[in-house]
């Protein structure tokens, strides 16, 4: 229903190159990328607020690249919500309805419907100046939904919200999507992609470097950038030999189960499945390496240890284990992992 074909634009320092994307009806598509890569620009191109240098935007197979902004049925919700400060919550939500020829009782019905969906019925008569970020976001969503867009474009909708508000809003977005609204959501947070999307595209350096079903992209990242960006550590390029070994990043040889007998590919080793110890331990694990601990990073419930064994390996251990084994930065340690803990991506 929405298709971007070879969209390119150069704006000051950054540029978008040959962006191709296709959204089907009902999709929840997440566009992942760091801040400042042009995600917002892409949304503004779709909404018609910016014209691309080249390329086309299609909606239901119609070329809308040069269509007037107000005639596209594409609704954009900006990161800063863009609530009209001189209007009340109700007037904000009613804004798109003025153009439509519907009577007042139907208008009120629509306003109440979307206010209730977004849980802001109690705020309708309030001014917008003293509302919280979460409330403003809901007003912006209700106002957009009332205009009945075919496709909703969300610019970092969760970025400026507190953690407790994020959960509620995620549910609301899911609900909106399930009601049949196609959503294109741009974010820098891969967790949002996992939580919400069925499809994902990763934008880097002005280009889409991988796109597809969310599960596929997260399971089979195309390169190290995508892997890191989607929260995957221990992603390596590997050259396989027939005898079940592989050389990773052209430096370290490891034992791996290569049933498909591939020669080149990528591997992921889950940090939770790597054992770290002060001495070498005898076990069924066939990969045992000595290395130097480069960094210990604390998290809420565990720690990540970065250990250099020829390549940097990320190992996750519990607080308890860290205390027990007294690992220190710049000290030596052993790591071991089974060849079956290695995921091979052709």
């Amino acid at each position: 229903m929405l298709k971007l074909k070879d969209i390119s634009i150069k704006l000051g320092e950054f540029r978008l190159k040959n962006i191709n994307l296709e959204l089907n009806k009902g999709d929840y598509y997440v566009l992942l990328g760091k801040s400042g890569v042009g995600k917002t620009v892409l949304l503004e191109i779709i909404a018609g607020l910016i014209k691309p240098d080249s390329g086309k935007v299609f909606q239901n197979n119609l070329d809308i690249t040069r269509e007037k902004i107000q005639n596209r049925k594409v609704g954009i919700v900006f990161q800063d919500y863009s609530i009209f400060p001189h209007l009340t919550v109700k007037q904000n939500i009613a804004y798109p309805l003025k153009r439509k020829k519907i009577n007042n009782s139907n208008k009120d019905e629509l306003i109440n419907k979307y206010a209730s969906l977004t849980n802001i019925t109690h705020l309708l008569d309030r001014n917008t100046q003293n509302l919280s970020g979460g409330e403003l976001q809901r007003v912006a969503l209700a106002r957009m939904l009332v205009s009945n867009p075919n496709c909703l474009l969300l610019d970092e909708p969760l970025a400026s919200l507190d953690i407790q508000l994020k959960g509620g809003l995620r549910n609301l977005l899911r609900q909106i999507n399930q009601s049949g609204v196609t959503i294109l959501h741009v974010t820098h947070d891969y967790e949002e992609a996992i939580a919400l999307s069925n499809k994902v595209a990763v934008l880097h350096d002005g280009e889409i470097i991988q796109k597809g079903l969310t599960k596929e992209v997260f399971r089979k990242p195309a390169n190290e950038f995508v892997a890191n960006f989607t929260g995957i550590k221990n992603f390596f390029i590997a050259e396989f030999t027939p005898i079940n070994t592989a050389k990773i990043n052209k430096t370290l040889e490891i034992n791996v189960s290569n049933k498909d007998e591939i020669t080149k590919g990528k591997i992921i080793i889950r940090g939770e499945e790597i054992i770290i110890s002060n001495e070498r331990i005898e076990s069924s694990a066939t990969n045992n390496f000595k290395g130097r601990i480069k960094q210990i990073i604390p998290y809420l419930t565990n720690h990540e240890i970065i250990i250099d064994i020829g390549v940097d390996l990320s190992v996750v251990i519990s607080d308890e284990s860290l205390r027990k084994f007294k690992f220190k930065e710049n000290s030596e340690a052993w790591v071991s992992f089974k060849s079956t803990a290695i995921k091979v991506i052709p």
């Binding site: 902004i69 107000q70 863009s82 009209f84």
Partner: peptide, 12 residues
């Protein structure tokens, strides 16, 4: 941005 938003909401 407020003007862009209003245009996007269908206003002339």
């Amino acid at each position: 941005k407020l003007e862009k938003t209003a245009l996007n909401l269908g206003a002339s």
